[in-house]
Design a protein around this nucleic acid. Structure first.
Lengths: 206, 206
DNA sequence: TATTATACGGAACAATGTTCCGTTTTGTCA
DNA sequence: TGACAAAACGGAACATTGTTCCGTATAATA
C-alpha cells in the first residue's frame, strides 16, 4: 500500500506490458485528501465522517474510496509518517540514556503520539476488521522497536522480564484513550505508573 | 432511573393525585428486554444493534425506546447489578487483607468484571455523550469504593500518594479493552503492573 | 362494560460507511 | 494536433443503525 511508482510517465511493468503513469489529477487529489484528513483528524478525531474530509479536500466521496478503499486506509496513510518518526526516535534515546530510562522515555514519546490523536487508540484495539490494516502497520513498525528497548532493559536487570512487548504496546495505547483533556498529562502519568511497575519487578528480584 | 414503584395497584403520589400502577405488559416487556439484552451483550458485545435485542425480546423498537430512552440506558440497566456487586466486594477484601493487597485484589475484581463485557470499556470512555449516564453510574458507585481502598493504602504507606482515584479507575478500565482472548489474563497482568507501579512509588519514598 | 391513561409496534427520519456507474479528464500516439 | 482508451471523478443510491413519531391496541379503573 505504500509508495507507488509516482510520476515517471510511461513505465513498463515487469511482464513487459505498457503501464501508464499515475495521472496528475489523481496525485493532486490524494495529496489534498491526506492534507484535509490530517486537519480533520486533528480537530474532530479519527471518527470524523468521510464526507467531511471529502468536502474539505474539494473532492467527491467516490474519489475518497477510489484511493482509500476503507476509512482505515485513509487513517493509516495519514499516520504512517508519524509512526515512522516514533519508531526512529528510539535510536537517539538509546544513545542518550540507560536502558530502563530509554525505555521509559520512548514509551512516553509513544504516549504523546497516541494521546494527541483523539480516537486513535480506541480504533487501534476495537477489534473492528476495518482497522486491522492500521493495527498491522503499528505492530510491524513499533513492536520491534519496543522489543529492542525492553530486551536491553531486561538484560541490564533494570526491569522485570515477565512482560510481553506486544502486551505492553497495546496496554500503553489503551491507557491513552482517556487523553484529550489536560494535554495528555493524565496519560503520561498512567504510563509512568506502568513503567514503575516494570521497575518494581526488577528491584524485587535482581 | 432506578427502581420504580413496581406492582402495587393504584398508588397515590405525594401530591395526592391518583396514580395508576405499572401495567403488567410494561413490566413483562422490560423484563424480557433486560433478559434479551443480557444475552446479546454477552455474545455480541455492547455494540449490538438495538433491533436485534428488540427482536430477541419479541418486542417492537418503539417499546425499547419507551423504557430505555437511549441505548446506554439499557446497557446501564443490565450492568447495574454487577456494578453494585463489584462495589460491595470491597468490604470483604478490606477485612481479609492489608490495605495494599486489598486494593490490588479489588482492582483485579474490577478488571474481571470489565474484561468480561466485550466493548464495555471502550464505551465507558468513548466520550460519546450517549454513554455519560452509564459513565456516571460507574463513577458514582465505584469511585468512592476505590477512593476508600486507595486512601487506606496510602495512609499505611504502602503505595504512592500522587495518583487520583478517578484516573486510576479509568486507566484500569482502559487496560481491559484488549481483553476477550485468553480469558482476560492479559488484562490482569497489565493491571498488576499498574498496582506494582503504585507500590514502587511507596518504596521509593517511605 | 365504558373510559382513558398507558403502552405497543413499526414506519419514517437522520447520520454514516460503502458501492456503482455514467461522465469527465488525462496521457498517448498517429 | 486530434482522436481514443484507460483512468479517475462525482455523487446518487444502498445498507446499517440510532432515534422519533403517531395511529392503534390494551390494561386498569369506575
Amino acid at each position: 500500500m505504500g509508495q507507488q511508482d509516482e510520476d515517471m510517465p510511461s513505465m513498463r511493468s515487469s511482464d513487459g506490458s505498457a503501464t501508464r503513469s499515475v495521472r496528475s489529477d489523481a496525485k493532486r487529489n490524494t495529496d489534498a485528501l491526506l492534507e484535509a484528513a490530517m486537519e480533520v483528524f486533528a480537530t474532530r478525531g479519527v471518527d470524523a465522517p468521510v464526507r467531511e474530509i471529502a468536502q474539505k479536500a474539494g473532492v467527491g466521496i467516490g474519489t475518497v474510496y477510489r484511493h482509500f478503499p476503507q476509512r482505515a486506509d485513509l487513517i493509516a496513510a495519514v499516520f504512517r509518517r508519524e509512526v515512522d518518526a516514533c519508531a526512529d526516535a528510539a535510536a537517539a534515546l538509546s544513545a542518550s540514556y540507560g536502558p530502563a530510562d530509554a525505555l521509559a522515555a520512548w514509551l512516553l514519546r509513544y504516549t504523546d503520539f497516541i494521546a494527541a490523536k483523539r480516537g486513535l487508540a480506541p480504533a487501534l484495539h476495537s477489534g473492528d476488521p476495518a482497522y486491522v490494516s492500521l493495527h498491522s502497520y503499528f505492530k510491524e513498525k513499533l513492536l520491534p522497536v519496543l522489543r529492542g528497548l525492553l530486551d536491553a532493559a531486561i538484560e541490564a536487570g533494570e526491569v522485570r522480564d515477565d512482560i510481553e512487548s506486544m502486551e505492553l504496546l497495546s496496554a500503553v495505547a489503551n491507557l491513552c484513550i482517556s487523553a484529550g483533556k489536560a494535554d495528555g498529562a493524565v496519560a503520561r502519568r498512567m504510563v509512568s505508573l506502568v513503567v514503575d511497575g516494570l521497575r518494581y519487578g526488577a528491584t524485587d528480584k535482581s
